[in-house]
């Protein structure tokens, strides 16, 4: 029990349970499988981005540029499959390749020129996005291929409501689930993953211990790029339109979700479970407000309050812990 209270995740889970209970009391439709699958599907885009952000935060850095990377990957992918055709695998490959390349550019600047990560990625956000808009002219893309649309409608299994409405586990959701599992294995069970934690905990010690800092940095930022690329693809699958201005601007919201889940901006701390909880909390808030017929105008107010309360609570906990620590064993 005491051990549970040490974990940030426990508190987030508690809040989620309380909110869910309140929402369910007001509108029982909240706690239906149909609603659940629906919410999970629509949040797979944010969810995948959050996985990438978790990696960067654990490594002790920050990435702001991932929204631009997602946009560029999505746009390039859409243009290519429309112009040259292809199938869903080429779409995946394209989005992933663009994401990884742009992530590698970030990593190169950060590693070789020692530029603070936040500055680097704010700059590259502007560069990636600016160039995309100039080249594309900001045009929206509607005419996505039929197979692209068809893929988005695939369900791994289908259920039926009493009224005969079909629902189930969407292929889009399963992409998210797959990503989370792979990411979890990397973080928990590979040398690389432990290296990311070690680097975030103490860069100097990691270097002395013999971790390959160069490779780890390159991996972290290209992985975030890859996640951004996949998220871009997923978002295109979800809305079936590619609009250059639909993703950029959301970067701080995603970071907020990850931080809610317990990842620290100081590095070295954070878990995928926490990140999922953070995304879940935000998803529930949004979905619950709709179901409770609260005006969506209030959405940001609630999210903002939750974030402030959450970070203030962790800060307060940290301080009381430091205060309670016994400096001298007085006899």
């Amino acid at each position: 029990m005491k051990n549970l209270l040490k974990h940030h995740e426990t508190y987030v889970l508690l809040v989620i349970i309380i909110f869910s209970a309140i929402i369910t009391v007001i509108n029982p439709r909240f706690l239906t499988l149909e609603n659940f699958f629906d919410v999970v599907k629509s949040y797979s885009f944010i969810g995948i981005l959050a996985v990438g952000v978790t990696f960067v935060l654990i490594s002790g850095g920050i990435d702001i540029s991932f929204t631009a990377v997602a946009t560029v990957a999505q746009y390039v992918m859409a243009v290519m499959i429309i112009r040259y055709g292809g199938n869903i695998f080429t779409a995946f490959l394209l989005a992933a390749a663009v994401g990884i390349s742009l992530g590698l550019i970030n990593a190169t600047l950060i590693y070789f020129f020692n530029i603070p990560t936040i500055i680097t990625t704010i700059a590259t956000l502007n560069i990636y996005y600016g160039i995309l808009i100039v080249i594309s002219g900001g045009k929206w893309i509607y005419a996505l291929p039929g197979w692209f649309r068809a893929f988005a409608d695939i369900r791994l299994f289908t259920l039926c409501t009493d009224e005969g409405i079909k629902y189930g586990l969407s292929i889009i959701t399963s992409i998210w689930i797959l990503v989370v599992i792979i990411a979890w294995v990397i973080l928990r069970y590979t040398k690389l993953g432990r290296g990311i934690y070690a680097m975030g905990g103490s860069m100097n010690a990691a270097r002395r211990a013999g971790f390959n800092i160069f490779r780890t940095q390159m991996f972290v930022y290209s992985f975030t790029g890859l996640m951004a690329g996949l998220a871009g693809l997923v978002q295109a699958l979800l809305v079936q339109t590619v609009a250059p201005n639909s993703i950029v601007g959301k970067e701080l919201d995603v970071i907020a979700a990850v931080v809610l889940g317990g990842a620290s901006l100081a590095g070295g701390v954070g878990t995928l479970f926490g990140t999922i909880l953070g995304v879940t909390l935000i998803a529930i808030m949004s979905n619950g407000m709709t179901l409770m017929r609260v005006s969506s105008f209030w959405y940001n107010v609630f999210i903002g309050l939750i974030i402030i309360l959450s970070v203030a609570f962790s800060a307060y906990q940290r301080r009381t812990k430091a205060k309670r620590a016994i400096a001298v064993e007085v006899e």
């Binding site: 907020a256 940001n300 107010v301 903002g304 203030a312």
Partner: peptide, 14 residues
């Protein structure tokens, strides 16, 4: 004693 980036991020959203 909240880190500035988080405090002002929350404030921004609020």
């Amino acid at each position: 004693d909240v880190s500035p980036i988080l405090a002002t991020l929350g404030m921004m959203i609020l």
